[in-house]
Design a protein around this nucleic acid. Sequence first.
DNA 1: GTTGTCTTGCAACCATGTTGCTTTTTTGTA
DNA 2: TACAAAAAAGCAACATGGTTGCAAGACAAC
Lengths: 142, 142
Amino acid sequence: MATVHQEESIALLKAHGLSVTGGRKDILVIFLSRKGALAHADIEKKLGARYDRVTIYRTLQSFVDKGLIHSIPTNDNSIRYALCKDECASGHHHDHHVHFVCKRCDNTYCLDSVATPSIKLPKGYSINQVEMVVSGQCPSCQ
Amino acid sequence: MATVHQEESIALLKAHGLSVTGGRKDILVIFLSRKGALAHADIEKKLGARYDRVTIYRTLQSFVDKGLIHSIPTNDNSIRYALCKDECASGHHHDHHVHFVCKRCDNTYCLDSVATPSIKLPKGYSINQVEMVVSGQCPSCQ
DNA sequence: GTTGTCTTGCAACCATGTTGCTTTTTTGTA
DNA sequence: TACAAAAAAGCAACATGGTTGCAAGACAAC
Ligand SMILES: [Mn+2]
Ligand SMILES: [Mn+2]
Ligand SMILES: [Zn+2]
Ligand SMILES: [Zn+2]
């Protein structure tokens, strides 16, 4: 399934300076063939027992480091990851979009078309990064 | 220490329909005498070995349920809690302010004076809650 | 003070994430 | 294509965060 994204995943890995391995390809294909964010546990489930848990952790970390995926903060203590757009590269993420978490189906979406609004803080605070997470019901769950 | 907040904590517990126990008082006093958000581990450290880990978890959960504290989403997989304002009650939180995480001192602040900006999402999404977490450097760390 | 209810402590468990080290795979080069 | 260096994967062990069931203790109301 989803052999469609095999080539694309290989190209992406090379473009981001990562060596091409079975695990990285498989994990990246999962992200490519799936709209919405994934947690480590989701990926582990989808992969079956093909790879060690530790390998998955390290793969996700390297993807974040190289600008292939970004992490999304949640209040339920589980990190979720989603594909970055082309502008992201090693050490330079440019994800300024809003994230949406559906309270019914529990899916997390990157709303690429919605930019995080600019914000003015009291004197003394310098801003580095702004994260906006909206929760409610997604279109499929209305 | 901080016996100043003893009475206040008792009053708050009663006002939110919680029975008054040693653990709840002590934990609430910690929140009252501390500006900034606290994680479970911080509280455990401040309490010494006076209470069981499980008791602290359950206490924090009951505080959230009753509208005494609210949780703040972070991207480092640790839930932090901060006192609510008076408007929050059992099952009805009204925390619409921005949160700030300092990347240097790692403190988390409720910016009560900064409201979360309103946001417009694509068709089909219904909004329930908006969380905004800004990171950078706090005034003390400039 | 007695009684019923709620809270606590304890033990055991599960989930998530990390580290060190060895073996295997990848990659660039000869 | 073969080889060596570098990187990744697997394994084991550990750390932290959080949950559950149950028995014993504390609180609140009468
Ligand atoms: Mn995103
Ligand atoms: Mn707050
Ligand atoms: Zn949904
Ligand atoms: Zn600071």
